[in-house]
Computed example of a mutant assay.
Amino acid sequence: MLRIPVFMPHEANAIRRHHIPRPKRRVTNWAAYNEAPRQRSSLTVWFTADAIAVWKAVPRTTPGGQPRYSNVLITTALILRAVFRLAPRQTEGLIGSVLQPLGLDLPVPNYSTLSRRAETMDLPARARATGGPIHLLVDSSGLKLSGPGEWLAEKHGTSKRRSWRKPHIGFDAVTGRIVASILTGRDVDDASQVEPLLDRIAEPVEVFMGYGGYDRTGVYTALDERHPDAVMVAPPCADAVLSATADTEPTQRDRHIEMIGERGRLGWRRMVDYGQRSQAEVAMFRYKKVIGRGLHARTLPTQKTEAKVACIVINIMTGLGMPVSRRIA
């Protein structure tokens, strides 16, 4: 008879999953949320006096050619491109079609300028502070790069295997926004990107939560140096052992190991509310549904800019309204 250990989480208890009822939830703010998707696709555009003032680039005082387009203009164009999934030429046409009916004498960057400026775009490295502590949930996934499609693989027998990049995001469970993001190659370890993610966050971190891959000494050290009062939640591996100072000065990891030994892994998940880490996976899923599952840029610097702009778009859309659901059964 097959016995399943009591410490196994739900995702590992596959043979008994059909006995676990699916929770039922109900959206409580349907009237307000129903308006948010409409606003996300609205083509209503207005230009404030401040936006018009910074539309053109500031003249340079050093020798060389004078710039015509400001960073605000290039960022706006890249945001429109990400929202409507446009090519650079289509983005140029969209901006021109908006400015002409309004009668605004403002320059429109051509498609080559958009591609060139995106490679050297200097977006803010630190997220804008909101004033309160955050519950940081970290996760990573994969974004495809362009490669041979199904037709080429079937016609010429070429390999269909594609290359991809790995985005690392820091999601705030309190405000529902992406507060930090990094794009790396596929061979980069997730735990090694925790320190750069923390350097991009302006708010104090109250809770740090990640999957088992973040249970590393370097992650604990980086969090303790920047946010010594933060609670670190990452499931230790099955063969984890207590530290040498567990009896006198237990670490957070020691407490997690002891709790798992006393209550089992499922009990530990309930005690630390580990289920909220799924919000980071939902944020990554939202990224792929809204922006897409791949990257359009060809070079790594441009791909990093594309990923940062995509996170800005996701934050703008979530700020318009999100559903608030309550469990009913």
Rank of each mutant, 00 (worst) to 15 (best):
R3Y: 07
R60H: 04
D224K: 10
D247S: 14
F84M: 10
P323H: 05
S42N: 03
V231G: 03
P250M: 11
R293M: 12
P133L: 04
D190E: 15
R22H: 10
G131C: 13
P101F: 05
A240P: 01
T248V: 10
I257W: 01
V179E: 15
T28L: 15
G132T: 07
R200K: 14
T245A: 00
G64K: 08
W30V: 01
G103I: 10
R255M: 14
E154K: 14
V309N: 07
T318F: 08
L123Q: 05
Y69T: 02
S192C: 12
P9I: 02
A129M: 05
G149K: 00
F208W: 04
A297E: 15
K289E: 14
Q193P: 09
M322G: 00
E306N: 11
G157L: 01
N71H: 13
R270H: 02
A307P: 02
R270N: 07
R263N: 00
V205D: 10
R38G: 15
R161V: 14
G261A: 15
E150P: 00
V282D: 02
I291K: 01
E195G: 11
A129F: 05
V282L: 12
G131A: 12
G142W: 06
I182V: 15
L295F: 13
D122Q: 14
V188L: 09
F208R: 01
L223A: 00
D189E: 10
D189N: 10
Y220W: 14
V231F: 04
L223W: 05
P196G: 13
D50Q: 13
A246D: 14
W164G: 12
R22K: 12
G103F: 11
C237H: 12
S278T: 15
R22G: 01
I316Y: 07
N13Y: 04
A12W: 14
R293L: 10
G275C: 07
E203R: 12
H227I: 02
I52S: 06
A53Y: 03
A49G: 09
H168R: 03
P301Q: 01
N110C: 15
R186W: 09
V27I: 11
S97Q: 13
T184Y: 03
Y69P: 05
P236T: 14
T28W: 00
A125C: 06
D187I: 08
L123R: 02
Q193T: 13
L320D: 08
A238C: 06
E258T: 01
P124I: 12
R277T: 03
A77I: 09
T299S: 15
K24A: 05
H168S: 04
R270V: 02
R298T: 06
T217D: 08
E206P: 02
S278P: 06
C237I: 10
A297P: 11
F208C: 03
G212D: 05
N315E: 03
M209W: 09
M271W: 08
D239A: 02
V45N: 02
R186C: 13
A127P: 09
G321S: 04
A51G: 09
Y33M: 04
H296D: 12
P323W: 06
P323K: 02
L80V: 11
A307G: 04
G212Q: 03
A36D: 12
I328P: 06
A118Y: 03
A246F: 14
P67M: 09
